[in-house]
Nucleic acid binder design. Structure first.
Lengths: 217, 217
DNA sequence: GGTAGACTGCACCACGCAGTGCAATCGGGC
DNA sequence: GCCCGATTGCACTGCGTGGTGCAGTCTACC
């Protein structure tokens, strides 16, 4: 697990309690309205805090956004860790476990609706976001998940349940065939799709994945 | 091929020549700045046209955006048709042809940079876009490509070169393993990635696809 | 030469928004 | 009782923006 230093994006002034309220409100409002439409006044109101206080904690709107998305990534990463651990550490029935993992993980955009709305914003603004910031986010987000999954796949392969010449590529393929498939269809949760459809898509993806990487008997 | 009627998004007043200039400029500016940041004044200047004229042709900014993205989809669809036809009609070496098709298609976001910037905007704003508009775009865009590809795969399967129980799912898998993989990494062309990397990614995807759908000898 | 439609330029409105300045208040530590 | 940092409320600046109104010009056609 690699952690990357990022220049501080928040001042150390102010009460942590207020800071949390601001961050929480910012996540909600940015998620609902997108970066540009979201106004600092709205965030202040939602946080039950004066606008002036926000500018005591964060130098400007952009840094506030940045801080929120990085925190969000950490929280999602932690969740992913728990999901992966729960389904992929002890394998009972490989197909079943992979499906359970995939379904739960592919459902997380619905659970972290605000955060993934921010992710969509990031993607839309990619060309206007400083390269090192984009880099930092990718490392905290997508890349981290893939690395983690690759680790589990390697372990599963070591026990002879899969044949995985290149764990990173395999993790990528799994990700594409399940998670990415779902988020493409649901716009990262913005368009609600039924749980059964998620299950169906993931199941199809896992079956394909297994055809790719299951050892020939 | 299904075409969907969409309510007209442009007035019939005005000279078609000016209209084209406006649409062209709008595509560029929206692509560069995103919907919200792009100002109608900028578009007017870029088009060499007075702002008043824009409002002679389009009722408002939103409709202008809409019109531009639908036109763009058509243009991209036409390109896709040519690429698919060129590589998938007559198959000489299946792997080679699929790779050539995949590489060329996965490179199109770089060729249609403006348009795919609009696509990212759409995705980011998905939750704020009227459902029927989103529907119309999906039909003109992603869904159309997938359908077309499914048709070719079916034809290839008919000749015994592939085993394709469900052409739609197969097309989806191909799409995920090649095109989507590339656009996820490049943010639809916003972040430049080397041609060799595109080739590499697509090649890996095609190989996986073939392992999934090649007939067992 | 007259009429009609398209275009232009420019002023203008109304509004929202990021960010600042400031005086006043609150609360805990010494 | 005093101080200091955090917070508040509010007015205010400056700017950009979507959209309109209007008076005048240009062009093509009759």
């Amino acid at each position: 697990m690699v952690t990357h230093d990022v220049m501080p994006v928040t001042t150390n002034r102010g009460l942590p309690e207020k800071r949390r309220a601001i961050a929480q409100a910012a996540r909600t409002v940015f998620g609902r309205e997108g970066f540009t439409r979201a106004s600092v006044d709205t965030i202040a109101t939602e946080a039950g805090v004066s606008k002036r206080t926000i500018y005591n904690h964060y130098p400007d709107k952009e840094k506030l956004f940045l801080s929120v998305i990085l925190e969000g990534s950490e929280s999602v990463a932690a969740t992913h860790m728990r999901i992966a651990e729960r389904h992929l550490r002890k394998i009972l029935d490989l197909e079943e476990d992979l499906i359970a993992y995939g379904v739960e993980w592919a459902s997380s955009p619905t659970a972290f609706l605000d955060h993934f709305a921010l992710v969509r914003t990031i993607q839309a603004e990619a060309s206007r976001i400083p390269a090192e910031v984009l880099e930092a986010w990718q490392n905290a987000g997508p890349r981290a998940f893939q690395e983690e999954l690759a680790g589990y796949l390697r372990a599963i392969a070591d026990r002879g349940l899969l044949v995985v010449p290149d764990p990173d590529e395999a993790a990528n393929h799994f990700n594409l065939l399940t998670f990415v498939n779902v988020v493409q269809k649901s716009f990262y949760g913005a368009i609600r799709i039924a749980d059964e459809e998620i299950t169906e898509l993931v199941t199809g993806g896992v079956r394909a994945f297994l055809r790719l990487y299951r050892p020939v008997v």
